[in-house]
Amino acid sequence: MFSFCSDPETLGTVRWFACYLTTGKHMSLYWSVLTVLSLLAITAPAALAFGFFGAMSARSHVLPLRWLGKAYIAVVRGVPDIAFFLFFVIALDQAFEWTRHQILCPDWTDPIRQGNDFIVCDAAKLPLSSAAQWVHEVYGFFLAVLTFAIVFGAFAANVLFGAMRAVPRGQLETAEAYGMTRRQTFWRVLVPQMWLYALPGLSNLWMILIKATPLLFLLGVEDIVYWAREMGASANRRFTDYPHGDWRIWYFLALLVFYLSFTRVSEIVLERINRRLLHGQATVGGGSR
């Protein structure tokens, strides 16, 4: 990075750290912060969408659809997220490739499962094996987002389901009395009002989502905890120009500060949104609290 970094052993403390903290490896750490932030930014709306459809189908009048929605909420909420992360990515990847295989290679006669191997035709591979490295990385990132969205979508569905039921019945009855169809009542009355009831639950979910990111490395995304572990580990002079002892405590301290400030900022922002939503509402929270 800096011109004086060519021979780290001769440097004083300040310059040594200036060089140490700007190695390619540390750049990967800083990049991973961006990775985590963008993953959160994409996952949150995706999980909300999953949650919305989950909640919608859980209160559907079509019986199988209702079962499906309720089963989705109950099963995913009942299982520790870590158990999902440990096998879900491979399962999703295989499911996609299997589907593409059925569509793209109808003439293929070999079995897809040969012993332990999972083999699809070349055209069905995701990403294609000729694809550049960044395509593979983007695909891995996409799978991680999808896994997070599925898992946290179930929690969001639970919150939204509760929120939809919390909208006072009188509101819906009035809408019906005005001759609105079920669909109209849902979109024009229920959905706009439910956010108020859903916000506390969704805020909590956002906090949990932030704190689940240390598990990202299970999904094959090199996140901040992965790099902090990797760089905090004692480094021998045979393998690096910057040998040091076991520094994991310092790296984890930095992570702690990062997470605490991130959750604090989120808390403040969410509190503001909540206050705005409550403004003018005749509920307990709008009054003396």
Binding site: M207, F252, L256, Y259, R264
Partner: peptide, 18 residues
């Protein structure tokens, strides 16, 4: 409340063991 709610359990375990 802030410290224990604001940080991942993962990191709390690490510090506690240390």
């Amino acid at each position: 409340i802030f410290v224990f709610r604001g940080s991942p359990l993962f990191i709390q375990f690490f510090f506690a063991y240390f």
